[in-house]
Amino acid sequence: MGAKEMKICLIGTVASSTLNFRKTFIELLIQEGHEVYVFATDYSEKTSAAIKALGAEPVSYQLNRGGLNPFADITSTIQLKNKIKTIAPDIVFSYFAKPVIFGTLAAKLAKVPRIVGMLEGLGYAFTPEPPHKKESFKKKLVRAVQIFLYKISFRYLDRIIFLNPDDPVDLLEKHKIKVKDVKILGGIGVDLEKFKPTPPSLDPIRFLFIGRLLAEKGIFEFLKAAEIVKQQHPEVEFIVLGAIDKDNPSSLSQNDLEYYKQANIITHPGHVDNVQAWIEKSSVFVLPSYREGVPCSTQEAMACGRTVITTDVPGCRQTVKDGVNGILIPSYSANELSEKIDFLINNPSMIIYFSEKSRIFAEEYFDAKTQNQKLFKFILKS
């Protein structure tokens, strides 16, 4: 193995997510002559074959994804350490909260020379609740445990990568977590050759929401705003892509979803695989989220040349220059959102203007090729 060629372990969670969001990055590593081992918790024959087709090696491992079971976590970490030790990699790169914690500890136990982690957002435990809602005891507990585990594991990282500049402030500085080195990546990026710009629909005007149907994604504000706007503009369409998460206490209920569908306020095709086709049929992309890393859905919408309405919160504000490629609104405000939607309906020329700027912005900041090269440097170089 030449000096440049290295063994690199990528540790994530589910295989489908790795294939969706790490595919072009894995291709880049292979292209550069590195041996790549991709760890996931749920390989099937199909996903395992897809990883092999990229030229990488799939590795199954166990991770107690939810819950707080220290014995399961210790067992998983020891098993993971043994798998890493067998490979003897030069670098371990983990992403998502639990893999960063336990992947880092396992890599340290396996004496890996370089360990890098990436948090693509702080997640549910660090996302603020709306002013009228009290934070649950469970959420406070999960956050406290996460901070404790970050404090233990982060000291062994050679570098931690965040997507936006707010996350390291709200996590590391606020909770006094020590790390050797911090880098800000920006968005993961989008394949600009796949997501091409198309003219936005103006007859009818369609507003599109993509995401899990959870309070923190802003689904309630989107639905309420749609209900308000529909009274004045029954011809305008509101489309919701995404599934209900029955196990999540902040999820939209099936009853509420049925109400909005029956009242003809929204169209809900559910979870779809052809997201791009739905973006192309839309006019404006809306994400009233309470907090993000840097949302991939918004980057894809921008690459297709879509106006964006999103909240002025960490992660979301990185995707919109207010009044240039879209509109920033305060979080938790269905009224404010309905006013901005109404403004765009009454000024369709602004939809065209913002759309053109969105694509330019995507090319400048969210080209997957550029972002993958940047991530590659962050992982490899001290």
Rank of each mutant, 00 (worst) to 15 (best):
N274L: 03
Y290S: 01
Y95D: 08
G55W: 02
S358E: 02
I279Q: 00
R212Q: 14
G2D: 15
I219N: 04
K98V: 07
I329Y: 09
F361C: 05
L54E: 08
L10P: 00
F222C: 01
Y95W: 10
A56R: 05
S201L: 02
S44I: 03
E45A: 11
I26V: 14
E216Q: 14
G187N: 12
T18C: 12
P70L: 05
N347L: 10
I91E: 02
G323N: 12
S48M: 07
D170E: 13
Q318M: 14
E45Q: 10
V59R: 06
N64H: 15
L172E: 08
C304Y: 01
F71A: 12
F162T: 08
Y353D: 13
A107Q: 00
I101V: 13
A97I: 14
I329Q: 03
G323T: 12
L171M: 07
P131Q: 05
R306G: 05
Y353H: 15
T47K: 06
I205A: 00
R212G: 05
I352L: 14
E129Y: 14
I360E: 15
P99C: 11
F195P: 04
H132E: 15
D191G: 06
L172A: 06
K134F: 12
G12A: 11
I84F: 00
K4N: 15
S331K: 14
L109T: 05
I11T: 02
V14H: 11
D322A: 04
K98Q: 08
I244F: 15
L19Q: 03
N264S: 14
N346C: 09
D367M: 05
V59D: 04
P99E: 09
V284Q: 01
K133V: 13
Q371H: 07
N325C: 06
F366W: 04
K230G: 03
E216R: 15
V169D: 11
C316W: 01
F39C: 04
N255R: 13
N64L: 08
E45V: 04
E227L: 07
G186K: 02
G189Q: 04
G187F: 00
I244M: 10
I30S: 00
S250F: 01
T307D: 03
H233A: 10
D203K: 13
G186M: 03
I91V: 15
S16A: 14
R291C: 06
L119C: 05
I265Q: 07
P199E: 13
I84Q: 01
C304D: 00
V272C: 05
F96C: 08
P197I: 11
E135F: 11
I279S: 00
T310S: 12
Q231I: 07
